[in-house]
């Protein structure tokens, strides 16, 4: 009888420990963060990329995602928390490898909250793009920043399949915005780009680390 009670106690303890570990690991698992690099005039620089599918060794290799890269579009890192200093101009260069999906709300076809009110698309200064051409949006609602990202042509010669997309066709989008006080803000995409989910708003749109993440202003 005593042996049985002991076995039950040990079994229950093991189950509780396993559940506790699972919950603890789940709650403490954070997508990696990338710190913006210094730029001229006290500003900082972020190099980002959007891809039609994460790397083949990713837990979700079919999900669309943001990545951190460098000016040469190399050194791809799957991080969606961007650390930037307070009260500073942040220059963002974004390499856009995905094709267009289109916006559900055309409001996001115009850049807002950026320095100068616009952005550049492949070197050309623009303020808005046709809503149907949008592949993604980089938006930080709490900072009033939103920039539409035009998709590469559907008939591109070298479309990217999975990250890293080195060598594939892409659009280059650049813009700047200014940070204010310290804080933790979310960024997100406003294009329903979660392929295979109802209205495209599931999967990577609802999971931190793919089409959304944090801006940590320090």
């Amino acid at each position: 009888m005593k042996q049985r009670a002991l076995a039950v106690t040990i079994g229950l303890t093991a189950v509780v420990v396993v559940i506790g570990l699972y919950i603890g690991l789940y709650l403490t698992a954070q997508p990696g963060s990338a710190t913006a690099s210094p730029s001229a005039g006290g500003a900082v620089q972020l190099y980002l990329a959007t891809v039609p599918a994460a790397a083949t060794n990713d837990p979700h290799p079919t999900w669309v995602s943001y990545y951190v890269t460098n000016s040469q579009r190399q050194d791809w890192q799957h991080k969606t928390t961007f650390v930037v200093p307070a009260n500073t101009t942040v220059h963002v260069t974004l390499f856009q490898y995905d094709s267009a999906t289109g916006l559900r709300n055309e409001f996001f076809s115009q850049a807002i909250g950026t320095t100068g009110g616009g952005f550049t698309l492949n070197g050309k200064a623009v303020r808005a793009i046709p809503p149907a051409n949008a592949s993604h949006v980089f938006a930080i609602p709490a900072l009033g920043v939103s920039v539409p990202l035009a998709g590469v042509a559907g008939n591109a010669k070298n479309p990217c399949s999975n990250a890293p997309c080195t060598g594939a066709d892409y659009n280059t989008i650049t813009f700047s915005f200014r940070t204010g006080a310290k804080g933790l803000f979310r960024w997100q995409c406003f294009v329903p780009c979660g392929a295979g989910y109802v209205q495209g708003f599931g999967g990577p749109m609802q999971t931190v680390g793919y089409m959304d993440g944090f801006i940590k202003v320090v």
């Binding site: 999906t101 289109g102 916006l103 559900r104 055309e106 115009q110 329903p192 109802v198 495209g200």
Partner: peptide
């Protein structure tokens, strides 16, 4: 570029291609 004003909207795309 906005859809003409209506009281409700059923915007495309409903599902990503």
């Amino acid at each position: 570029l906005l859809t003409p004003y209506r009281h409700t909207y059923f915007p495309a795309p409903q599902r990503r291609g």
